[in-house]
Design a protein around this nucleic acid. Structure first.
Lengths: 338, 338
DNA sequence: ATGAAAGCGCTAACAG
DNA sequence: CTGTTAGCGCTTTCAT
């Protein structure tokens, strides 16, 4: 009688070994590409693998190798990240390196209660390491992970100097690029809209901008803090126009915020770039969606994300490898907003 | 002498059992919440677990339970998805249900060569099931998975009627909403910009729009196909204005495309909504970023994604559970573009 | 209600 | 170069 279509019995090493007439160890060697296997046997085993449709069981392998073959991407809890094109770029860059290696990418959102989850996942061996995105100053997770000696890479310079591996863009240099561009244009009164100053990215961009501007003879730069969102950018621009009605040049610390801010300028009858010149930061999709297209500081997010993945995988491979920091150089992309 | 700070030896069931003075089996029962354990022993074991800082090893558990405790989210290969706010909304909705359950969410991008990877991950037991996003007509993956009897949920109605579980929004109803709104406004000449017609979402929105428009006395509705991207929307609008210069009402099948199309209208000196009324689809962040804010058909993406996760988890739990389809109703969100 | 014992499928010494 | 053997840490009958 016909079997009630059940899940086919999974093929094991044992069975392949039987079919090929060798031991499990030999099959294992072939599967793992160990070079010390007789060419003839290898051939034989390979055929048996194909014939049986064998697929190795990861759990069994993990149990003995103590490797999960998976890394985590930890997002900030606020959830705002998911609406930012930055998120997709990071995912894309990370997957470019993990996918070909067969390493799984696990998404986790941080946040109260989830920290333990992350640490637990690491300790349970479900995750070999994690990439931490945009943790803010108060976040205890980085320290928690370092103290537990778990492989971790940060997507930004840590708030306090910490023996931790991270990848970042040279924020200061980026802000400097923006500052010079605005100064070169002959702006009279410049200002900036920053990200949350609890992040080093926002701090550095602000500092770099102010420093360079001071050098160029603009001692007073008004700054309004926002939250890296579209809406936040709009609100901040309204506020800025009140605080500083004669502004004619503004550096906005993310393209998404700039995209929110531009319509506010137009609403107030201000033309970009003639009345107010605007420089953004990121060079992500909103920059092109802006009207006019946004002049912005480009950070190579995909490349940076790929580098994070590589560094993490490297650390997992050899935990004794020293921590390191890789800093990418930003470039100015001139379009029409400034 | 002080130990060279090494990774602390992981605590096992064995050790907890020793500390509590019971057998491994009992500890296992306590950990898994089996009810037939003496209250006193349970208490004892619980204390031992805390004292030792025990965390169960997932690989060992998976090996015997044959459950990975992880599901996959498979994205279309084109990569365009990563730039779409839709992506973040899906992730958000799925994580809302997986995170509290301790189920891992693994990101995978489909694409040549990756299909095998996905099937393989499933068969290796690395993934208990997958959610497939926006697969297009020609994609062989859904069939591959069904044939292998693997748990899968689709994020849209399958192209051909297939015994598969899926979640969708009532596309026809959504398009009908848009059509009536434009007709009620008294538009004279209406048109539409569609998504890739290889997707059922695009097909249904087009069909629903045309059908309803015909009912309302507009037999000829010009349609231009685009790709659901910002840029594609802009290009399509240019094309549409050539094909149909007197258009005064257009249904654009995604907010992202609408966001790209609006500036084109303005560039041509056309005012929205006075000269041309525009209705979008999605109600995602670009709708609010539009100028003027976009009137659009809202689909509850987060809820839909959460439902997909629930359905998938249900199927994993009981594979014999019959396939099902859950269809959400869209609503019209009226703002200023129409 | 609890413990003993048998694996889950795989890798990694260690012999040979 | 290959096979034998001993687990990895956990769940799960099966006795008791």
């Amino acid at each position: 009688m016909p079997e009630p279509r059940a899940t086919p019995a999974p093929v094991t090493l044992e069975e392949v070994a039987r079919v090929a007439g060798v031991s499990r160890a030999t099959v294992s060697r072939v599967v793992n590409g160990v070079s010390t296997v007789d060419e003839e046997l290898r051939e034989l085993v390979t055929r048996a693998i194909v014939a049986t449709g064998y697929t190795p069981n990861r759990a069994a392998r993990s149990l003995v190798t103590r490797r999960a073959g998976a890394i985590g991407l930890v997002l900030p809890d606020e959830g705002r990240m998911l609406g930012d094109p930055y998120f997709g770029r990071v995912v894309s860059g990370v997957m470019d390196v993990t996918q070909p290696l067969g390493v799984q990418l696990v998404l986790t959102s941080a946040g109260t209660g989830t920290h333990q989850q992350v640490v637990s996942d690491l300790r349970q061996g479900r995750l070999d390491g994690v990439i931490l995105i945009h943790t803010h100053a108060a976040d205890p997770l980085p320290k928690l992970l370092i103290d537990n000696n778990l492989p971790v890479v940060l997507a930004a310079r840590p708030v306090r100097p910490t023996p931790i591996t991270y990848v970042d863009v040279n924020q200061l240099a980026g802000a400097t690029l923006a500052a010079h561009h605005l100064a070169d244009r002959g702006c009279y009164r410049v200002a900036t809209i920053t990200g949350p100053v609890s992040t080093t990215a926002a701090q550095d961009r602000l500092k770099g901008f102010r420093t360079t501007m001071a050098d160029r003879g603009y001692p007073d730069v008004v700054a309004v803090e926002a939250d890296f969102t579209h809406e936040g950018g709009a609100t901040a621009m309204e506020e800025l126009l009140v605080k500083c009605p004669d502004v004619d040049g503004v550096f906005i610390a993310s393209d998404l915020m700039a995209h929110g801010a531009l319509p506010v300028l137009r609403k107030h009858g201000l033309h970009v770039p003639d009345d107010v010149a605007v420089v953004g930061f990121d060079d992500s999709s909103p920059a092109l969606a802006c009207d006019p297209p946004l002049t912005t500081v480009r950070q190579p997010v995909e490349d940076m994300a790929a580098e994070m993945a590589r560094l993490l995988l490297g650390r997992i491979e050899r935990p004794d490898r020293p921590v390191s920091a890789v800093v990418f150089e930003p470039t100015l992309v001139v379009r029409q907003s400034a």
